[in-house]
Design a protein around this nucleic acid. Structure first.
Lengths: 191, 191
DNA sequence: CAACAAAAGCGAATCCTTTGCGTTAGCCGA
DNA sequence: TCGGCTAACGCAAAGGATTCGCTTTTGTTG
Protein backbone atom coordinates (compact mmCIF):
# COMPACT_ATOMS: atom_id res chain seq x y z
CA UNK A 1 0.00 0.00 0.00
CA UNK A 2 3.04 2.26 -0.04
CA UNK A 3 4.01 3.07 -3.60
CA UNK A 4 7.24 4.77 -2.76
CA UNK A 5 8.54 4.58 -6.24
CA UNK A 6 10.19 7.95 -6.05
CA UNK A 7 10.59 8.91 -2.42
CA UNK A 8 12.90 6.15 -1.44
CA UNK A 9 14.13 5.89 2.08
CA UNK A 10 17.28 4.32 0.78
CA UNK A 11 18.03 5.90 -2.55
CA UNK A 12 21.38 4.30 -3.05
CA UNK A 13 21.94 0.67 -3.74
CA UNK A 14 19.53 -2.14 -4.16
CA UNK A 15 16.27 -0.23 -4.19
CA UNK A 16 17.50 1.93 -7.02
CA UNK A 17 18.83 -1.03 -8.93
CA UNK A 18 15.55 -2.89 -8.62
CA UNK A 19 13.57 0.13 -9.73
CA UNK A 20 15.81 0.54 -12.73
CA UNK A 21 15.64 -3.12 -13.64
CA UNK A 22 11.87 -3.15 -13.42
CA UNK A 23 11.47 -0.01 -15.48
CA UNK A 24 13.85 -1.39 -18.08
CA UNK A 25 11.90 -4.62 -18.15
CA UNK A 26 8.70 -2.75 -18.81
CA UNK A 27 10.29 -0.82 -21.64
CA UNK A 28 11.66 -3.95 -23.23
CA UNK A 29 8.47 -5.94 -22.88
CA UNK A 30 6.28 -3.13 -24.15
CA UNK A 31 8.21 -3.37 -27.39
CA UNK A 32 8.32 -7.15 -27.46
CA UNK A 33 4.90 -8.36 -26.45
CA UNK A 34 2.91 -5.17 -26.52
CA UNK A 35 1.31 -3.06 -23.89
CA UNK A 36 -1.72 -5.30 -23.50
CA UNK A 37 0.17 -8.46 -22.70
CA UNK A 38 2.11 -7.04 -19.79
CA UNK A 39 1.69 -8.73 -16.44
CA UNK A 40 3.46 -8.32 -13.16
CA UNK A 41 4.93 -11.84 -13.11
CA UNK A 42 6.20 -11.37 -16.64
CA UNK A 43 7.85 -8.07 -15.85
CA UNK A 44 9.27 -9.37 -12.62
CA UNK A 45 10.80 -12.38 -14.33
CA UNK A 46 12.46 -10.18 -16.94
CA UNK A 47 13.74 -7.82 -14.29
CA UNK A 48 15.14 -10.70 -12.25
CA UNK A 49 13.02 -10.02 -9.20
CA UNK A 50 10.08 -11.79 -7.66
CA UNK A 51 6.54 -10.63 -8.35
CA UNK A 52 5.96 -9.86 -4.71
CA UNK A 53 8.68 -7.25 -4.87
CA UNK A 54 6.83 -5.43 -7.60
CA UNK A 55 3.55 -5.69 -5.77
CA UNK A 56 5.07 -4.34 -2.60
CA UNK A 57 6.82 -1.44 -4.24
CA UNK A 58 4.16 -0.36 -6.72
CA UNK A 59 1.11 -2.07 -5.37
CA UNK A 60 -0.33 -2.64 -8.75
CA UNK A 61 0.47 -3.12 -12.42
CA UNK A 62 -1.32 0.09 -13.19
CA UNK A 63 0.73 2.15 -10.79
CA UNK A 64 3.91 0.73 -12.23
CA UNK A 65 2.80 1.48 -15.77
CA UNK A 66 1.79 4.95 -14.65
CA UNK A 67 5.32 5.62 -13.48
CA UNK A 68 6.78 4.35 -16.70
CA UNK A 69 4.29 6.27 -18.81
CA UNK A 70 5.36 9.53 -17.23
CA UNK A 71 8.90 8.85 -18.34
CA UNK A 72 7.70 8.45 -21.89
CA UNK A 73 5.79 11.71 -21.69
CA UNK A 74 8.78 13.72 -20.50
CA UNK A 75 9.93 16.04 -23.28
CA UNK A 76 13.47 15.45 -24.38
CA UNK A 77 14.44 18.78 -25.82
CA UNK A 78 13.50 22.41 -25.44
CA UNK A 79 10.99 23.82 -27.91
CA UNK A 80 12.53 25.01 -31.17
CA UNK A 81 13.29 28.72 -31.55
CA UNK A 82 11.55 30.37 -34.50
CA UNK A 83 12.34 33.95 -33.68
CA UNK A 84 9.02 35.05 -32.26
CA UNK A 85 6.48 33.93 -29.74
CA UNK A 86 3.64 33.29 -32.15
CA UNK A 87 5.71 30.90 -34.21
CA UNK A 88 7.30 29.21 -31.22
CA UNK A 89 4.02 28.58 -29.50
CA UNK A 90 2.25 27.42 -32.63
CA UNK A 91 5.01 24.98 -33.44
CA UNK A 92 5.17 23.69 -29.92
CA UNK A 93 1.41 23.24 -29.71
CA UNK A 94 1.37 21.43 -33.01
CA UNK A 95 4.07 19.05 -31.95
CA UNK A 96 2.48 18.55 -28.57
CA UNK A 97 -0.84 17.66 -30.15
CA UNK A 98 0.82 15.38 -32.62
CA UNK A 99 2.62 13.45 -29.91
CA UNK A 100 -0.21 13.29 -27.44
CA UNK A 101 -2.89 12.41 -29.96
CA UNK A 102 -0.93 9.54 -31.47
CA UNK A 103 -1.92 6.02 -30.42
CA UNK A 104 1.14 5.55 -28.20
CA UNK A 105 0.73 9.05 -26.80
CA UNK A 106 -2.85 8.45 -25.84
CA UNK A 107 -1.92 5.12 -24.36
CA UNK A 108 0.78 6.64 -22.17
CA UNK A 109 -1.53 9.45 -21.23
CA UNK A 110 -4.18 7.04 -20.11
CA UNK A 111 -1.70 4.94 -18.19
CA UNK A 112 -0.28 7.99 -16.48
CA UNK A 113 -3.68 9.19 -15.37
CA UNK A 114 -4.94 5.75 -14.57
CA UNK A 115 -2.69 4.26 -11.98
CA UNK A 116 -2.30 7.40 -10.03
CA UNK A 117 -4.40 7.55 -6.86
CA UNK A 118 -2.96 10.81 -5.59
CA UNK A 119 -2.68 12.58 -8.92
CA UNK A 120 1.05 12.81 -8.52
CA UNK A 121 2.02 11.58 -11.94
CA UNK A 122 -0.67 13.63 -13.60
CA UNK A 123 0.76 16.70 -11.94
CA UNK A 124 4.14 15.78 -13.29
CA UNK A 125 2.79 15.69 -16.84
CA UNK A 126 1.31 19.10 -16.44
CA UNK A 127 4.57 20.37 -15.03
CA UNK A 128 6.41 19.17 -18.11
CA UNK A 129 4.11 21.18 -20.35
CA UNK A 130 4.41 24.19 -18.07
CA UNK A 131 8.19 24.01 -18.23
CA UNK A 132 8.19 23.97 -22.00
CA UNK A 133 5.82 26.89 -22.14
CA UNK A 134 7.91 28.76 -19.66
CA UNK A 135 10.95 28.36 -21.87
CA UNK A 136 9.05 29.75 -24.83
CA UNK A 137 7.72 32.70 -22.85
CA UNK A 138 11.06 33.59 -21.29
CA UNK A 139 12.63 33.53 -24.70
CA UNK A 140 9.99 35.93 -25.98
CA UNK A 141 10.51 38.17 -23.01
CA UNK A 142 14.25 38.20 -23.60
CA UNK A 143 13.58 39.27 -27.17
CA UNK A 144 11.65 42.21 -25.88
CA UNK A 145 8.24 41.02 -27.00
CA UNK A 146 5.48 42.64 -24.97
CA UNK A 147 2.02 41.82 -23.70
CA UNK A 148 2.93 38.22 -23.15
CA UNK A 149 0.46 35.77 -21.70
CA UNK A 150 1.56 33.95 -18.59
CA UNK A 151 2.02 30.22 -18.25
CA UNK A 152 -1.34 29.65 -16.61
CA UNK A 153 -3.10 31.40 -19.44
CA UNK A 154 -1.38 29.27 -22.02
CA UNK A 155 -2.29 26.15 -20.09
CA UNK A 156 -5.93 27.24 -20.01
CA UNK A 157 -6.19 28.41 -23.59
CA UNK A 158 -3.89 26.08 -25.48
CA UNK A 159 -3.01 22.95 -23.54
CA UNK A 160 -6.33 22.35 -21.83
CA UNK A 161 -8.47 22.45 -24.97
CA UNK A 162 -6.16 20.04 -26.74
CA UNK A 163 -6.09 17.66 -23.82
CA UNK A 164 -9.81 17.82 -23.41
CA UNK A 165 -10.37 16.85 -26.99
CA UNK A 166 -7.75 14.12 -26.91
CA UNK A 167 -9.28 12.55 -23.85
CA UNK A 168 -12.96 13.18 -24.35
CA UNK A 169 -13.43 13.44 -28.09
CA UNK A 170 -10.89 11.22 -29.78
CA UNK A 171 -10.61 11.57 -33.51
CA UNK A 172 -10.82 14.52 -35.80
CA UNK A 173 -7.98 16.57 -34.36
CA UNK A 174 -5.69 18.27 -36.81
CA UNK A 175 -2.59 20.45 -36.57
CA UNK A 176 -4.57 23.52 -37.60
CA UNK A 177 -6.50 23.33 -34.36
CA UNK A 178 -3.31 23.57 -32.35
CA UNK A 179 -2.08 26.52 -34.38
CA UNK A 180 -5.40 28.28 -34.05
CA UNK A 181 -5.38 27.95 -30.28
CA UNK A 182 -1.82 29.18 -30.07
CA UNK A 183 -2.53 32.11 -32.35
CA UNK A 184 -5.60 33.17 -30.40
CA UNK A 185 -3.67 32.97 -27.16
CA UNK A 186 -0.77 35.08 -28.39
CA UNK A 187 -3.10 37.59 -30.06
CA UNK A 188 -4.33 38.22 -26.57
CA UNK A 189 -8.00 37.50 -26.76
CA UNK A 190 -7.60 38.06 -23.06
CA UNK A 191 -7.08 41.10 -20.86
CA UNK B 1 -13.95 -9.54 -26.52
CA UNK B 2 -17.25 -7.99 -27.59
CA UNK B 3 -18.37 -5.44 -25.02
CA UNK B 4 -21.83 -4.99 -26.43
CA UNK B 5 -23.14 -3.35 -23.33
CA UNK B 6 -25.25 -0.90 -25.23
CA UNK B 7 -25.72 -2.21 -28.76
CA UNK B 8 -27.59 -5.32 -27.86
CA UNK B 9 -28.75 -7.66 -30.55
CA UNK B 10 -31.69 -8.61 -28.40
CA UNK B 11 -32.65 -5.56 -26.45
CA UNK B 12 -35.74 -6.96 -24.85
CA UNK B 13 -35.76 -9.67 -22.27
CA UNK B 14 -32.94 -11.39 -20.53
CA UNK B 15 -30.03 -9.32 -21.79
CA UNK B 16 -31.65 -6.16 -20.55
CA UNK B 17 -32.49 -7.70 -17.20
CA UNK B 18 -28.96 -8.92 -16.69
CA UNK B 19 -27.50 -5.55 -17.56
CA UNK B 20 -29.84 -3.85 -15.16
CA UNK B 21 -29.14 -6.33 -12.40
CA UNK B 22 -25.40 -5.95 -12.80
CA UNK B 23 -25.53 -2.16 -12.86
CA UNK B 24 -27.73 -2.19 -9.78
CA UNK B 25 -25.31 -4.51 -8.06
CA UNK B 26 -22.44 -2.14 -8.78
CA UNK B 27 -24.39 0.79 -7.37
CA UNK B 28 -25.29 -1.10 -4.23
CA UNK B 29 -21.82 -2.45 -3.64
CA UNK B 30 -20.14 0.87 -4.29
CA UNK B 31 -22.09 2.19 -1.35
CA UNK B 32 -21.59 -0.86 0.82
CA UNK B 33 -18.00 -1.92 0.41
CA UNK B 34 -16.54 1.04 -1.45
CA UNK B 35 -15.22 1.50 -4.90
CA UNK B 36 -11.87 -0.11 -4.17
CA UNK B 37 -13.24 -3.40 -2.94
CA UNK B 38 -15.29 -4.15 -6.02
CA UNK B 39 -14.51 -7.34 -7.89
CA UNK B 40 -16.26 -9.08 -10.72
CA UNK B 41 -17.17 -12.18 -8.71
CA UNK B 42 -18.59 -10.00 -5.95
CA UNK B 43 -20.72 -8.00 -8.34
CA UNK B 44 -21.84 -11.08 -10.21
CA UNK B 45 -22.93 -12.81 -7.02
CA UNK B 46 -24.96 -9.80 -5.96
CA UNK B 47 -26.55 -9.53 -9.39
CA UNK B 48 -27.42 -13.20 -9.40
CA UNK B 49 -25.34 -14.07 -12.43
CA UNK B 50 -22.11 -15.94 -12.91
CA UNK B 51 -18.82 -14.10 -13.25
CA UNK B 52 -18.28 -15.42 -16.73
CA UNK B 53 -21.39 -13.60 -17.86
CA UNK B 54 -19.93 -10.32 -16.71
CA UNK B 55 -16.58 -11.05 -18.32
CA UNK B 56 -18.24 -11.93 -21.59
CA UNK B 57 -20.48 -8.91 -21.72
CA UNK B 58 -18.10 -6.28 -20.43
CA UNK B 59 -14.76 -7.98 -20.84
CA UNK B 60 -13.34 -6.36 -17.79
CA UNK B 61 -14.10 -4.86 -14.42
CA UNK B 62 -12.86 -1.53 -15.69
CA UNK B 63 -15.17 -1.47 -18.66
CA UNK B 64 -18.12 -2.29 -16.48
CA UNK B 65 -17.23 0.45 -14.04
CA UNK B 66 -16.75 2.81 -16.94
CA UNK B 67 -20.30 2.19 -18.08
CA UNK B 68 -21.66 2.72 -14.60
CA UNK B 69 -19.58 5.84 -14.08
CA UNK B 70 -21.07 7.46 -17.15
CA UNK B 71 -24.50 6.99 -15.65
CA UNK B 72 -23.37 8.83 -12.55
CA UNK B 73 -22.02 11.65 -14.64
CA UNK B 74 -25.21 12.17 -16.60
CA UNK B 75 -26.80 15.44 -15.51
CA UNK B 76 -30.26 15.04 -14.10
CA UNK B 77 -31.78 18.44 -14.72
CA UNK B 78 -31.37 21.33 -17.11
CA UNK B 79 -29.21 24.22 -15.95
CA UNK B 80 -31.05 26.79 -13.83
CA UNK B 81 -32.36 29.92 -15.54
CA UNK B 82 -31.02 33.16 -14.09
CA UNK B 83 -32.30 35.53 -16.71
CA UNK B 84 -29.11 36.14 -18.67
CA UNK B 85 -26.34 34.17 -20.25
CA UNK B 86 -23.55 35.43 -18.05
CA UNK B 87 -25.32 34.30 -14.90
CA UNK B 88 -26.50 31.00 -16.37
CA UNK B 89 -23.10 30.02 -17.61
CA UNK B 90 -21.31 31.08 -14.45
CA UNK B 91 -23.71 29.12 -12.28
CA UNK B 92 -23.53 26.09 -14.50
CA UNK B 93 -19.74 26.15 -14.60
CA UNK B 94 -19.58 26.52 -10.85
CA UNK B 95 -21.84 23.57 -10.27
CA UNK B 96 -20.04 21.51 -12.89
CA UNK B 97 -16.71 22.15 -11.24
CA UNK B 98 -18.12 21.41 -7.83
CA UNK B 99 -19.49 18.07 -8.91
CA UNK B 100 -16.56 16.99 -11.03
CA UNK B 101 -13.89 18.06 -8.59
CA UNK B 102 -15.44 16.24 -5.64
CA UNK B 103 -13.88 12.94 -4.63
CA UNK B 104 -16.72 10.86 -6.06
CA UNK B 105 -16.82 13.02 -9.17
CA UNK B 106 -13.12 12.54 -9.80
CA UNK B 107 -13.48 8.84 -9.18
CA UNK B 108 -16.31 8.49 -11.70
CA UNK B 109 -14.41 10.62 -14.15
CA UNK B 110 -11.38 8.42 -13.89
CA UNK B 111 -13.43 5.28 -14.23
CA UNK B 112 -15.27 6.64 -17.23
CA UNK B 113 -12.06 7.55 -19.02
CA UNK B 114 -10.23 4.47 -17.90
CA UNK B 115 -12.08 1.41 -19.00
CA UNK B 116 -12.92 2.77 -22.38
CA UNK B 117 -10.79 1.40 -25.21
CA UNK B 118 -12.63 3.21 -27.99
CA UNK B 119 -13.27 6.45 -26.17
CA UNK B 120 -16.96 5.90 -26.43
CA UNK B 121 -17.86 6.65 -22.85
CA UNK B 122 -15.58 9.64 -22.76
CA UNK B 123 -17.38 11.04 -25.75
CA UNK B 124 -20.63 10.55 -23.94
CA UNK B 125 -19.42 12.64 -21.00
CA UNK B 126 -18.46 15.44 -23.32
CA UNK B 127 -21.82 15.20 -25.03
CA UNK B 128 -23.58 15.66 -21.71
CA UNK B 129 -21.71 18.88 -21.09
CA UNK B 130 -22.34 20.03 -24.64
CA UNK B 131 -26.07 19.42 -24.22
CA UNK B 132 -26.21 21.48 -21.07
CA UNK B 133 -24.31 24.30 -22.67
CA UNK B 134 -26.55 24.14 -25.69
CA UNK B 135 -29.59 24.60 -23.48
CA UNK B 136 -28.04 27.66 -21.89
CA UNK B 137 -27.08 29.17 -25.23
CA UNK B 138 -30.46 28.55 -26.87
CA UNK B 139 -32.14 30.15 -23.93
CA UNK B 140 -29.94 33.22 -24.31
CA UNK B 141 -30.66 33.33 -28.01
CA UNK B 142 -34.39 33.14 -27.36
CA UNK B 143 -34.06 36.10 -25.01
CA UNK B 144 -32.53 38.09 -27.82
CA UNK B 145 -29.01 38.22 -26.39
CA UNK B 146 -26.45 38.81 -29.10
CA UNK B 147 -22.85 37.94 -29.87
CA UNK B 148 -23.18 34.55 -28.29
CA UNK B 149 -20.30 32.10 -28.24
CA UNK B 150 -21.00 28.72 -29.76
CA UNK B 151 -20.88 25.40 -27.95
CA UNK B 152 -17.41 24.53 -29.17
CA UNK B 153 -16.05 27.79 -27.87
CA UNK B 154 -17.54 27.23 -24.45
CA UNK B 155 -16.10 23.73 -24.37
CA UNK B 156 -12.67 25.11 -25.23
CA UNK B 157 -12.73 28.09 -22.90
CA UNK B 158 -14.73 26.89 -19.93
CA UNK B 159 -15.06 23.13 -19.76
CA UNK B 160 -11.62 22.18 -21.01
CA UNK B 161 -9.64 24.30 -18.54
CA UNK B 162 -11.65 22.97 -15.62
CA UNK B 163 -11.26 19.39 -16.74
CA UNK B 164 -7.58 19.84 -17.34
CA UNK B 165 -7.04 21.12 -13.85
CA UNK B 166 -9.23 18.48 -12.29
CA UNK B 167 -7.35 15.70 -14.01
CA UNK B 168 -3.82 17.05 -14.11
CA UNK B 169 -3.57 19.40 -11.17
CA UNK B 170 -5.81 18.14 -8.43
CA UNK B 171 -6.34 20.46 -5.51
CA UNK B 172 -6.66 24.17 -5.26
CA UNK B 173 -9.68 24.64 -7.47
CA UNK B 174 -12.29 27.06 -6.26
CA UNK B 175 -15.67 28.24 -7.54
CA UNK B 176 -14.22 31.62 -8.47
CA UNK B 177 -12.13 29.97 -11.14
CA UNK B 178 -15.24 28.57 -12.80
CA UNK B 179 -16.98 31.94 -12.68
CA UNK B 180 -13.93 33.68 -14.10
CA UNK B 181 -13.73 31.32 -17.06
CA UNK B 182 -17.44 31.69 -17.75
CA UNK B 183 -17.27 35.47 -17.51
CA UNK B 184 -14.30 35.70 -19.86
CA UNK B 185 -16.03 33.47 -22.36
CA UNK B 186 -19.26 35.44 -22.35
CA UNK B 187 -17.42 38.76 -22.48
CA UNK B 188 -16.14 37.51 -25.78
CA UNK B 189 -12.42 37.55 -25.37
CA UNK B 190 -12.72 35.79 -28.67
CA UNK B 191 -12.99 36.69 -32.37
C1' DC C 1 32.35 -3.01 13.07
C1' DA C 2 28.09 -4.14 15.21
C1' DA C 3 23.23 -3.41 15.54
C1' DC C 4 19.21 -1.95 13.25
C1' DA C 5 15.70 -1.54 9.85
C1' DA C 6 14.13 -1.39 5.17
C1' DA C 7 13.49 -3.94 1.31
C1' DA C 8 13.83 -8.33 -1.27
C1' DG C 9 13.32 -13.45 -1.67
C1' DC C 10 10.52 -17.50 -1.10
C1' DG C 11 6.52 -20.36 -1.09
C1' DA C 12 1.91 -21.45 -0.04
C1' DA C 13 -2.88 -20.17 -0.04
C1' DT C 14 -6.38 -17.53 -2.07
C1' DC C 15 -8.72 -15.33 -5.45
C1' DC C 16 -9.51 -13.73 -10.11
C1' DT C 17 -9.87 -14.70 -15.00
C1' DT C 18 -10.33 -17.45 -19.03
C1' DT C 19 -12.32 -21.05 -21.74
C1' DG C 20 -15.01 -24.99 -23.66
C1' DC C 21 -19.30 -27.08 -23.64
C1' DG C 22 -24.06 -27.86 -22.62
C1' DT C 23 -28.48 -25.33 -21.69
C1' DT C 24 -31.85 -21.64 -21.77
C1' DA C 25 -34.62 -18.18 -23.64
C1' DG C 26 -35.84 -14.55 -26.86
C1' DC C 27 -36.79 -14.00 -31.89
C1' DC C 28 -38.63 -15.20 -36.46
C1' DG C 29 -40.97 -17.46 -40.15
C1' DA C 30 -44.42 -20.82 -41.41
C1' DT D 1 -49.45 -21.03 -32.39
C1' DC D 2 -45.60 -23.73 -32.96
C1' DG D 3 -40.81 -25.25 -34.10
C1' DG D 4 -36.22 -23.88 -35.47
C1' DC D 5 -32.38 -20.73 -34.83
C1' DT D 6 -28.93 -18.33 -32.34
C1' DA D 7 -27.31 -15.04 -28.90
C1' DA D 8 -26.52 -15.10 -24.29
C1' DC D 9 -26.12 -17.53 -19.93
C1' DG D 10 -24.67 -21.26 -16.43
C1' DC D 11 -21.29 -24.48 -15.03
C1' DA D 12 -16.90 -26.21 -13.98
C1' DA D 13 -12.10 -26.84 -14.61
C1' DA D 14 -7.58 -24.96 -15.68
C1' DG D 15 -4.34 -21.36 -15.58
C1' DG D 16 -2.64 -17.10 -13.77
C1' DA D 17 -2.41 -13.25 -10.73
C1' DT D 18 -2.28 -11.45 -6.08
C1' DT D 19 -1.60 -11.62 -1.16
C1' DC D 20 0.75 -12.84 3.06
C1' DG D 21 3.78 -14.61 6.66
C1' DC D 22 8.34 -15.59 7.29
C1' DT D 23 13.33 -15.62 6.30
C1' DT D 24 17.33 -13.53 4.31
C1' DT D 25 19.92 -9.93 2.34
C1' DT D 26 21.70 -5.27 2.29
C1' DG D 27 22.34 -0.46 3.13
C1' DT D 28 22.58 2.81 6.92
C1' DT D 29 23.84 4.59 11.46
C1' DG D 30 26.11 5.14 15.80
Amino acid sequence: MAPMARAMARPGGRSARVQQAVHDAVHALEAEVGRGALTVPLIAARAGVTPSTVYRRWGDLRELLSDVAVEHLRPETDPADHGELAADLAAWAEQFLDEMDSPPGRSYLRDALLGDPDGDNAGRCSAYAAEQIDVVLRRADARGERRLPDVETVLDQVVAPMMYRILFRPGGLDPAYARRLAAACVAGDRQ
